[in-house]
Design a protein around this nucleic acid. Structure first.
Lengths: 181, 181
DNA sequence: CGGCGCATGTAATCGGTTACATGATTCA
DNA sequence: TGAATCATGTAACCGATTACATGCGCCG
């Protein structure tokens, strides 16, 4: 065992900011969504567990007149645990499952037009995703951030997403060309 | 709901071959492992369920003197179900979780040398994977298979794996260059 | 005052892995 | 005859999603 990636994602986000469960939920909807995510129904029980483990603690703040917010912060034990995880080389993870490629693998059982439709529909989706990724950050990353700024690693991760989408589009174009010829 | 990808992976594999649970298990260790996999402990219960659903059936064969093998075959209902799944356009899946990028995202909390070590160690792993992917199939795909042969879709899926690894290596090289400058 | 977003939780279920468990076949 | 592989299953657990459930705050 010993994975607990959600634990370390949360500890990392709390490393220099105190956040509520809801804030964390919102973070997983932002740029992180490119490589990690979690729903609130997973976050709240995890936070409870982390507090029991002693790697986080919380203070209750009152918003308005009675709305309770649990503002979590990382403890010293949490920092230690997190840094230990971060600096331990983990074996490369298995290539993730991919539904589209599973379907493509069986596409020999489809009519040629259906194959092409499947491929071009998918290409269109990836082109949109690529355009969206680029547009969202063309201003932010017009200049490559300083290599020690907080933004630098956002940039590296964003660059990976863009390069991956570009490659996927190139691959799908090749597939279409080969199928259509 | 309505995902059941393992179900359709199995039906696809049974589409023109009769196989035992063990055969299916071995298939998931082959070229398919690039985009799908399953352990025997998941396969056997699934086959049982599929038989109850009526999409597969089986005959018991005796190997040697007493070893029972359940040889599964797809039923007409199964073929229909499978083709229906295959020709239905599914929404693009969310980008899969990626532990390495999660760690990289937090790499600002590491010492510069540790960052570089993390990146080059990962690059080395991906280079090996790429070399392995290429070597394994350089003979098989020296000539692109006929577009209606069974091998053609194996080729497309293999090409994707190679292109993806190439891109990952290029990205890691860029990361290292930016971190080291 | 109504609707959307903030805020927190639990329950049921699913897909998947790890571990437990058994026994036959084949080949060195 | 012993080890590797063939062959089939169950149990416990984990990570994650979907659905259920509640209530306040804020802005128009």
């Amino acid at each position: 065992m010993q994975k607990r990636h959600l634990k370390y994602a949360i500890l990392g986000l709390l490393y220099n900011e105190n956040l509520t469960g809801y804030d964390l939920y919102l973070k997983f909807g932002g740029p992180l969504s490119e490589f990690w995510s979690a729903k609130h129904s997973q976050i709240y029980p995890e936070l409870k567990k982390l507090a029991e483990e002693g790697v986080v603690s919380y203070d209750i703040e009152i918003a308005g007149t009675s709305l309770e917010k649990k503002v979590y912060s990382i403890t010293e034990a949490g920092r230690e645990d997190f840094l230990n995880w971060l600096s331990t080389i983990e074996p490369m993870q298995a290539t993730p499952k991919d539904v589209f490629r599973l379907r493509l693998f069986f596409a020999a059982y489809l009519e040629p037009e259906a194959r092409l439709a499947m491929l071009s529909e998918h290409l269109e989706e990836h082109r949109l995703r690529l355009a969206h990724l680029r547009r969202k950050n063309e201003d932010v990353f017009a200049v490559i951030p300083e290599k020690d700024s907080a933004l630098f690693f956002d940039y590296l991760v964003w660059l990976n997403a863009v390069m991956r989408e570009e490659t996927t589009c190139r691959w799908l174009e090749t597939c279409i060309a080969l199928c259509a010829e």
